[in-house]
C-alpha cells in the first residue's frame, strides 16, 4: 500500500469514527416520555386575582423581581385571553372569553425554534420533551429570544441576584448576561414530584403528566376536552395545552 493511500484511509476512518456515533445518537427517537402541561382556563377565570402559581414558581427558582416591564424576568405569568388567542377565536366568542386570564410559560415545543438558533447549544431538547437551558454555556446573544414566538425567554440585563427575595439554595442563581426561562421543574420531576405551579394550585387548574402514557390523566383529558395551543399554525407543536 502506498503511504498516500494509507493516510487517506486513516483520515476518512477518523472522521467516520468521530461523527458516526453522533449521527446514530441524533437518530435515537424511541421516546417513552413527553411531558405536557394542561391549563384549565375556565378554572383560572373563576379566581382572577390568584397568582399563587406564579409566586411559588418564582420563589422556588430564584426568579428575581426586577420590577417594571422592560427588564422583567418571567418564568410563568398571565395575560388576557384576547391577547394570547387573538386570532384563534372569533370576535363574538371573545366577548365571553376575552378578559379571562391565561397562564403563560415556556411551551417546551416539540419543534423548538429557540433550540435551532442557539449558536452554542446552550439550550437543547431533552428526550422527555423538556427544553433545557445551560446558564453556564449561554453567551447572551439573545437569538433564542428573537426566535421564540411566545416571549417565554427573559434576559438578565444586569446582576439581578439582589432582587431575589429569599434565596433557595437548592437551585442555581443566574449571573448577568444570560437568558433564562421555565424548565418544567425538571429538578422536581427527577425526584418524582409534580412541578411547583401544579402542586401549588389549590383549584387544580394545572395538570402535568406524560402524554406518551395512554393511561395518564393528561392523555385522557386531552382526548375528551377541547384544547388550544398558542400559535399552532407556526408548527412549533407546543406541550402546554389550554383547556376551554
Amino acid at each position: 500500500m502506498k503511504r498516500r493511500d494509507f493516510l487517506w484511509i486513516v483520515g476518512v476512518s477518523a472522521i467516520w469514527g468521530i461523527f458516526f456515533p453522533r449521527v446514530l445518537a441524533s437518530q435515537e427517537k424511541n421516546r417513552d416520555k413527553r411531558w405536557v402541561m394542561l391549563v384549565d382556563v375556565s378554572v383560572c377565570a373563576k379566581n382572577r386575582d390568584c397568582e399563587a402559581c406564579i409566586k411559588a414558581c418564582h420563589e422556588t427558582h430564584n426568579v428575581p423581581n426586577v420590577g417594571g416591564s422592560k427588564e422583567q424576568i418571567k418564568w410563568i405569568w398571565f395575560s388576557k385571553f384576547e391577547k394570547v388567542f387573538e386570532t384563534e377565536i372569533p370576535p363574538i366568542a371573545q366577548k365571553k372569553l376575552g378578559s379571562w386570564p391565561v397562564i403563560l410559560m415556556c411551551n417546551h415545543c416539540e419543534n423548538p425554534p429557540c433550540v435551532k438558533v442557539c449558536p452554542t447549544s446552550a439550550t437543547w431538547k431533552r428526550k422527555d420533551g423538556i427544553v433545557m437551558m445551560d446558564y453556564h454555556r449561554c453567551i447572551g446573544c439573545r437569538y433564542c429570544m428573537a426566535a421564540c414566538p411566545y416571549g417565554a425567554r427573559s434576559f438578565n440585563w444586569r446582576d439581578n441576584k439582589r432582587y431575589v427575595g429569599n434565596v433557595n439554595y437548592d437551585f442555581p442563581l443566574r449571573n448577568k448576561g444570560v437568558v433564562e426561562k421555565c424548565n418544567f421543574c425538571e429538578e422536581r420531576i427527577a425526584k418524582g414530584l409534580q412541578p411547583k405551579c401544579v402542586e401549588t394550585c389549590e383549584s387544580r387548574a394545572l395538570k402535568f403528566g406524560n402524554l406518551y402514557d395512554a393511561d395518564s390523566s393528561v392523555s385522557k383529558v386531552l382526548k375528551e376536552r377541547t384544547s388550544l395551543v398558542r400559535k399552532g399554525y407556526l408548527g412549533t407543536n407546543p406541550n402546554v395545552f389550554y383547556l376551554l
Partner: peptide
C-alpha cells in the same frame, strides 16, 4: 456583535460547541 453579547468572555463557546443548525455559527 461582540458588544451585544451578554457574556463576551464566553465568545469562544461558539467554536467550542459548534452548532451548525444556528445561522450565527
Amino acid at each position: 456583535v461582540l458588544v451585544d453579547l451578554g457574556r463576551p468572555d464566553r465568545l469562544f463557546n461558539v467554536i467550542l460547541f459548534p452548532s451548525p443548525k444556528s445561522l450565527l455559527f
